[in-house]
Structures are given as C-alpha cells and as structure tokens.
Write a protein that binds this DNA or RNA. Sequence first.
RNA 1: GCCGGAGUGGCGGAAUUGGCAGACGCGCACGACUCAAAAUCGUGUUCCUUCGGGAUUGUGGGUUCGAUUCCCACCUUCGGCACCA
Length: 818
Amino acid sequence: MSISKTPRYIPANIEPKWQRKWEADGLYHSDIDPEKKKYYALTMLPYPSGNLHIGHWYAMTPSDARARYLRMNGYNVLFPMGFDAFGLPAENAAIKHNIHPKQWTYDNIAHMREQMRSMGNMFDWRREAISSDPKYYRWTQWFFIQLLKNELAYRQKSLVDWCPKCNTTLAREQVVGEDRHCERCHTPVVKKELEQWFFRITRYADELLDFTDIDWPEPVKVLQTNWIGRSEGASVVFHTEQGDPIEIFTTRPDTLWGATFMVLAPEHPLLKKITSPEQKTQVEAYVAETIRQTDIQREATDKEKTGVFTGGYAINPVNNERIPIWVADYVLMTYGTGAIMAVPAHDQRDFEFARKFGLEVRVVIQPPDMPALDGANMPASVPARGTMVNSGILNGTPADEAFRQAIRFVEEKGFGKGAVNYRLRDWLISRQRYWGAPIPVLYCEKCGVVPVPDEDLPVLLPDDVEWKPTGESPLKLHPTWRFTTCPQCGGKAERETDTMDTFMCSSWYHLRYLSPDEENAPFNQEEYDYWMPVDTYTGGVEHATMHLMYTRFFHKAFRDLGVVKGNEPMLQLRNQGQILGPDGQRMSKSRGNVVDPDKQVQLYGADTVRAFLMFGYRWAEGGPWEPGNITGVQRWLNRVWNIFLDEPQVGNFDEAGAKLLRRKLHQTLKAVTRDYEQFEFNTVVSGLMELSNTLQEARAEGASAAPVWKEATSIYLRMLAPICPHIAEEIWERLGLPYSIHTQRWPQVDEQATQEEEITIVLQVNGKLRDKLMVPVNCSEERIKELALANETVQRFLEGAVPRKVIYVPGKLVNIVR
RNA sequence: GCCGGAGUGGCGGAAUUGGCAGACGCGCACGACUCAAAAUCGUGUUCCUUCGGGAUUGUGGGUUCGAUUCCCACCUUCGGCACCA
C-alpha cells in the first residue's frame, strides 16, 4: 500500500560510520578503575600473514561478543589485540618478492588492523603490542637473560630436529605426525648435532600436570598431560662384568627378576667399551646402518626388531645373574637413560626381540585367569598383572604390591631408587633465521658466555642483512653486527647470531598489552596488579602442547623469579573449532576453497557475518562454510530493522497479548543470558530469532503502539548489541535512545514475568505420548491424575485395564502404566 | 595399538537435572503480492501408514514407569600420541 517511510537496512551505510565514531569517542578504552571489577578477556593474536582469514573472524567475534556482554554486566573489560609479528613467512616472502621482512610485516599489520576494524570489535587499540617492535623484544630479551641468570636457560650440544626447508632447528613440539615433519612447512625433519639454547621446561613438568587452579577444556589438559608423559618407576644400576655401571629406567621394577638380557641404544656412550673384540665388526656395522636410517624408518612401530649382541654381559643386581647385553634401535637414546633391562615375558617389544634372537623368556608374573605360563612356549608376552613367581623374595606377592616392595628392596640394597621419567624434553629456542628476537648473549674468548647487560638492550636486529637461507643465521653473514667487544673485559667478543623461537615472544604478550609503551619494565606493575590474571582466554586447540604449555611454563618460571604472581596466567580457556572450506577440507590457497571475510562483509555487512558465524556452528566444533546459510541471518537482521523502525501497524493487541509478549521477552532474556555465560552463541542467536518472530506477529496486531513495546525494544536491542554492534547502535539511535547502546547495562530478568499460567502436562501410557493436558500452574497433583485417567485417549489405550502405577512428574507429565 | 572429541531429518544444528525428539535457520513444495521476476509475507516439510497408528537420535545389549541424555560392548569419523622401557 504505502512505501515504508524508513530507509532500508544497508549495512555499508552504518557500519563504517559507527566504527569511526566509537574510535573517535574512545568508547572501548579500558583503563584501571578500582571502583569496578576487572575482566581480562584475551583472544589469541594473529600472525600478520597479510590477510585476515574467516577463521580469525570465527575465533574473535564470539570472544568480542562475550567481552561486550561482560562489559554491559558492569565489568571493566580489557580486550586487547596485537600481532605475533616475528617469524619465518616474512623471510620467505622477502626472498620471493624481494622486499624486506620488516616492511612486509608492517605493511601486513597496517592492512590487517584495518580489516579488524571492519569487524567492529571492542579492541582497545591503544594497548596494541607488536612482538617485532624493538620496544617489545627488548623485554623478550630481558626475560631470556633472567632465565639464563637463574639457570633456566642453558646451551648444549645435542642431536636436534632440523627442518631442511625452513633451514632452522625446531622444538620437539614443532615436529609432528608419523613422518616427523615440520609443523610449518610439512617437510620431514632430519637430525643434526648442534649447540643450541634450551629452556628448562622439564623442571616444571610436575607442576604443569597440575590443573587444579584453572578451568581449561578437558581435551587440552589431556593433550598436555600426554605430552609431558610422566611415568613412575625406578632407576636401577646394573654393572657390566668389567664393573662399568649401566643405569636403566623401568616402570616395572617388580619384573626385575624376569630380566634376561639388556639392550643399549646405538648411540649409548658405553657401547664401545662393552663390545667384545669378536663382536666389534658386527656392532660397528649395525650402528653405522642405524645412523644412516632416518628417524621415520627407525621409529616405525611395525618394523621387525633388529639388533646385535655386543659380546658383553651385565650382572642383574637383584639375583646376580649374568645376562647378555645387546644393541638395538628399538631403544631410544632420547628417552630414559638409553638403556633398558629386557623382560620378554611381560613386554611385547622385548618378547619379539627375544624370540627373534632366541633369548630366554622367563615368566615372573602369573596372571590369575591364565593357565600356568611357560616362557619357552608362550606365543606373546602377557600383561604384568597377577602374582609374582621366580622372583626370590617377591614370590607370592601381588604384582602391584611387588612394585613397591621391589623399589624398597633396591633402595635398601643400594642398587637404585624410585624414579620418575618424562617424555617432555627441554624447550629448544634457537632458530637459525633472521626475523626474530636476537638471543642477547655474547661469546668472549676470555669470559665465555656473557649476557648482554641490561643497559645495552635491546640487541637490535640490523636492517641491512642478506637473508638468503643458508642453514646458518643470516646474522652470521653481517659484516659488522656479529663482532663486538666484551662488556666485561673489553676484549674481542662475538654475538650469538641465532634468534629466538617466536613462541618465546608469544609466551608473554598478554603482559605487554598491559602497558605496551612501558620503558622501564616489561609491564607496568599497577596495570599488572589490576588486570592480571587473564580471566578468559580463547583460541584454537592446536596450540595445546606449544603456546599454551610454553606460556604456563613461562608464568611459573617468572613467578619463581618474583616477576609475576599466582600459579597460572590464564584462568579459563575456551577453544573454538575450525571453519573449513565449502568442500569440507581445510581452507588453503592451493585448494582454492578460501572464504575471504572482506568479500562477505561487502556482500552482507559485518553484523551479518558476525551473527552467522555465531549462529551456524557449535563454536567449539566449527565445520564447513555453508555459502547459502548466511542468507537466513541476513533476512533476520532485515526483519529486525523493520520490526523496530517501520511505521506502527494498527490491530487489536490487548493486555493479554502484552502479558504474553512480556513473558516471551523475559524468557528469552533468561536463556540468552545463560548462553552468553556458557559460550553457547548459536542458541543466543536462535533465541533472538525466535523472539523477533514473536515481535513481528505482535506488531502485526498493533503491539508497537502499546507500552510493552518500549520495554521489548530496549531489551531486544541490548541483547543484540554484543553480536551485532552496528545495527543495534543504529536502531537505538534512530529510536532516540541515549548513546551508546554499548555503555548500557545488561537488562534484568523479571522472574515473575517468565512464569507460565498454564502448563502442558504430557500424558503417557506405558511411556508413550498419547495426549496433552492444559492445566493451571497451581493445579493439584490429585486433580491432574484425575484428569489424566479420565482422558479419552488415555482411556482408549488403557483398553479397560486398571492402571498398575501412575507416575506424576510435577509440571511435566503423567505416565500411566498398565 | 593407546588417549581424547563427535555421530540426531535432504543440510547446519536445538533439546538446562533421565520426562513432549527435531527449537531456530538453510533447502524444498505450495500459496499471496506481481504483467512477470526478484524481494517480502503466509502455509507445509523426519520416515512409513490401511489415517487407528507404527518406527525413529551410528549399531547391539542393559538399567528405568520413561533414555538423544546413565551403564556395557561394538562401528564410523575427526584430532593427538606412538618401539617412551
């Protein structure tokens, strides 16, 4: 009939406008306010790869929505953003496009910062921290020096993982998969013997296993626990016939009497000495062959056992038996002591080895549910649960009891002691690349390793460098940077030319946000005392055994050095899933399935993209991008716009309608509030959609002229504001409500209004739904049962039988059992 | 092999403490508006059905008056670890 007098909803006309205004007004500035309860909401910072990915939107938007929700609930919320700006891609791009890594990085940051602004997040950009800024890495270097001074950083020559494509060493955590490939470029790694810097994360292994202070997702805790790999057992010292000690670690000291041979790793230092002249040729050939093999070949689990007798013998301290010593590659030098006692009867690996080489298999544990075992004929090793046999003093003891007794025994006799072993290795942080924070130490001919004095920090990364990757740090090739004088003796000194693993930079960025311009300390103490710890941290699970473990280690180490407080840096962690391409595959340029968020914003507007990402998926799960589904959200926001801004309609909306509308309004508010708390964003949106359907129907009946409409509008827009900040602000303003909606308080649920007057009672016969009953809320149990039994459908299904039982669940159902 | 997550309509997903399975949305079908189309609005939409009802939350058991929810076994799938002594 008449064309709407209000303009249509055109996101492009309102979104940039509000973003500029919020920025100009400093609406999202977070400053210390002792009057208010603080909330530190942190979401993982991106690497400045050049473009924001739809995955960044997926991770950041719900975090932003929840931060906004908390702010409306009266918290003083800190929600900062920055860039994890050091790292390899900058160098690779530099080589490819002949552009300086620094320029490439900062150009990307400038672009991505603008992309992030288009999301309409409440980031306080004054607190932006960029890890490649000298004012940032000056403190990364300072942290390194503190670790060094406190023996938590050390330099050691060892066999380390090397990525031949990235031309650098990697931490154990950065080597992944069955084929042991580089986490970044997927090239299989090789071993190299190099002198590298390590952090003593292993010293904190036990504490890292303790999650009592934090609310983290179970899977992350499991991943970290498995990665740390704590095993309890004993370390026992065997001796060779010549008297050389060989220490072994075992998780089954109870099976000591069943050890029929020993195995050394091919790299074991004692191997040469043990080997008899007759066996020398064979052993040397075996070791040479083993070393030629890659780790992948060596560590393949399905591989047949190989090994060679050394000619040497050891004495088992518990029974003085003489047992042969073999060398085999199924024993790893990197775990335990690189030597084992072999108990073939109760360990499948030892069993396979023993059978192949005709070694004795001696049963020392008889499982209760098996016939008497015979070592010579058993087809496989058996689980070590049962009663001890052939074990001297332990005979007749249950195995779990024998475990403790054996430890006591070896301790008393001085053969060994109870011991704990970890799979976790120390964190290798040296990288032979240019674009990273230089490791701030000097090597002086006279003084040795010298930390760079505080007043000389930062050790600046020189700009004029040839960054072609040679396998050595490009800094090594710099003509002048490398050579300097020793601050202690004034003599000739050389700089460390390796840079730090970027995970070192990201281990403390949450602290730099507190005061990114602070010059006298890594962070301002007052800011720290107010904001820390991080209340909620959000990001992907893929960081479980890397960043998330490193940052916990970092915090605990610096707690012990008196720099930070508390046991944990991040109290609550929540993981989002991943958005896959429309084909269900990981998004990648090579697959051509990448969804560009900028284009989506252009097509639908930021609010629609935000709401869709929250509505279409279980946040923790993620899933494939469904190109069509976003239209549902687009339609919804169009409807919302029209519901609140179109001319009122005339109808017969009455008091009863108003009461129903208020009920739905407050019921929704209650549900939505709960869902924001619980990170269930899809039901926040669906709840708002449902309510908008109700509002639309009520409106057609003339509700927008009724007094209740004002309340509904105000509550609805405030519930919408965290998800769709622009449209909520725009409608709010057009309705003449006070700027800004984002500084309004979260609405209060009117519990009374949510109460139903009538309830539906489900009628079941033998547990099957047969009919429904509408009764007043206060209807008595007797009356409801009476009505239920009198019900026509119920009667029909009873077929005249007398009910055996009538179950009444208050307010829910009546189940009649016949 | 071990550890962990997930299996619900054609699709994404919902179901709060063991109590109406399939909310909300996509898609589809039909209708209204339109010369027509788009947009919008309305109605319907798990499957089978003799229209009474029956079946149904990966499969098979169990507990219970009642199970998507709890227990046991298994299958599929996605992650992690893997000769770790």
